[in-house]
Amino acid sequence: MTFLAEKLDYLQFPFVRYALIVGVLIALCSSLLGVTLVLKRFSFIGDGLSHVAFGAMAIAAILKFTNDMPVVLLITVISAILLLRTGQNAKIKGDAALAMISVGSLAIGYLLMNIFAKSANLSGDVCTTLFGSTSILTLSKAEVLVCAILSIAVVIVFILFYNKIFAVTFDENFARATGIKAGAYNLIIAVIIAVIIVLAMNLVGSLLISALVIFPALSAMRVFKTFRSVTICSAVFSVICALLGILISVITGTPVGSTIVAADIVAFALFTLAGKIMRGKRT
């Protein structure tokens, strides 16, 4: 108990609290678009983009930018828009192009890091980019601020376009027939995904981002039946798992990203069970 209390003393340090706030905000906004991504079969784009972000990060690193976030953000947003375009073009097979881009970025990223990196701890650096930093506590104050602003922007955009996103996700043809510019909203969705991926990279690393986006939505869909309740439940689910994951990782010293994803997996199993029980009762 004294051990726990000692560990929880960490919370007195401002940087630990900042980390918790950022973690919660990132978890919140990465869960919002989960339903849309899963149901529009966009989840593979999220996965591909996270690899692109990895490549971008490598480029930013060798160019020695002091703050690599803007570069990574720009490259990822442009890729998101391009990927959406090819996805709509029936002549080029969307997922084949995507697989090429995503594996290509991974390879080039690693290659560049290998050739140019002066760091003695290369594999450590790569591991950090792929699986997230061992501790979110290493985020600088500027990074914390940028993360907070971007996450809040994502949440606001999502709330403002909530009804449109619902309409476009549920039935794109009907939405277009009633005058919704579905192309524009698909673009907004793609840009939000890109921002979320760049944000989430700080928290869980590029390989684990999809988990952060997809687990909350899939879990909520096991139990809830309306778009609004699924969206709210995903958000709460994601935030609680992130909080738990960060606290556990601070206390036990496990890597943040994988701890959060482990919490997601456990919660997903619980929700699946709950969904089964509820369905069993009704019939």
Partner: peptide, 21 residues
């Protein structure tokens, strides 16, 4: 369409989405 079959949405949410225009 296929998307609609496993979409979590209530009757009210769907009917209301007809008012977009």
């Amino acid at each position: 369409t296929d998307v609609q079959r496993d979409f979590p949405a209530s009757v009210w949410e769907i009917v209301l989405s007809g008012c977009q225009n």
